[in-house]
């Protein structure tokens, strides 16, 4: 739609837009800046914005904490692991629901969604006890299992909406062209579904990375991912702002970048296709 927009209007909205954007982003920016300060500068009054002695010391120190790398590894293992297992379960299911729907397909989808509506505290007690009895407390395996189940409905839904957009006629064409079911999936469906699968994967890694109910409640020292590691800075004596900032920056930077890349697909995933 080509519409005439006056320069003045453009400038006005530019100023408003950038102003709001800056304000909303500011806490993140502030964390980023603080991570390069010394602990002294970090709590200085008046606050130091740009003109201070930049230092990488906090990063060194956080990384040299013996357990830091363990938490990073835990976060990666838990978020990627649960996403991959979720995809392995969801791709066949979504394929079946999108391309061979029955009268009950819709009910199954809605039911899957409803499991997502269950508040975690509703099942906290039994899961805690099951984990305790099975020796899964504070293990990566346990957290991977939990997060897989939590995100499975979202994965199925997102894949379903993507698969739905692949016209059935193309798969029929492949069938007419002599492709077996295997070849149909390998040569035709998968290449066409790759963008959808990729963005589903990205969103679910993000969600799992930031999950902070089960990870806080079911992990302690060994399997704790970064969410729980950062939470340990909340103790009253832990007023190490610069180090907190450095640890936080490292914990959110990779996910923030992934999130920016997947922002177009985000809406679909988060609203279960209700808004596209």
């Amino acid at each position: 739609m080509a519409r005439a927009i006056t320069t003045r209007k453009k400038v006005t909205f530019g100023i408003i837009g950038w102003g709001i954007g800056f304000l909303i982003f500011f806490p993140i920016l502030w964390t980023f800046l603080t991570s390069f300060k010394t602990e002294g500068t970090a709590i200085a009054t008046p606050p130091q914005f740009l003109f201070f002695d930049w230092t990488l010391e906090n990063y060194h120190e956080v990384q040299s904490r013996s357990d830091y790398m363990k938490h990073v590894t835990n976060s990666v293992v838990i978020s990627v692991g649960s996403t991959l297992i979720g995809l392995a379960l969801a791709i066949p299911a979504a394929w079946a629901m999108a391309f061979s729907p029955t009268k009950r397909t819709k009910d199954v989808l809605m039911w899957m969604l409803s499991t997502k509506m269950m508040p975690p505290v509703g099942v906290l007690v039994p899961l805690y006890l099951i984990f305790r009895d099975w020796g899964l407390l504070d293990t990566r395996l346990g957290l991977v299992a939990i997060l897989t189940m939590i995100n499975l409905p979202i994965i199925v839904w997102m894949l379903y909406t993507y698969f739905k957009e692949i016209p059935g006629e193309i798969l029929e064409a492949a069938r007419m062209d002599g492709a077996s079911l295997m070849k149909e999936i390998v040569y035709v469906l998968t290449p066409m579904a790759v963008p959808g699968i990729a963005s589903t994967m990205l969103l679910n890694i993000i969600l799992a990375w930031n999950e902070a109910f089960w990870t806080l409640n079911l992990s302690a020292a060994n399997a704790a991912p970064l969410t729980a590691f950062i939470a340990s800075y909340s103790s009253p004596e832990g007023l190490f702002w610069a180090k907190l900032s450095a640890a936080s920056t490292m914990a959110i930077a990779p996910i923030l970048i992934m999130g920016w890349f997947s922002q177009k697909q985000l809406v679909r995933g988060l609203t279960f296709g209700a808004v596209k």
């Binding site: 909205f13 990375w209 800075y233 923030l256 999130g259």
Partner: peptide, 27 residues
């Protein structure tokens, strides 16, 4: 509304959503 740097502002605005809850609370 169209304005200069719209895409960047959009990225700035959605950023808090990707910050893990423990980090945003502590910050």
């Amino acid at each position: 509304q169209p304005f200069w740097g719209q895409g960047i502002v959009r990225l700035l605005v959605i950023a808090p959503f990707f910050v893990m809850p423990t980090v945003s609370a502590l910050v």
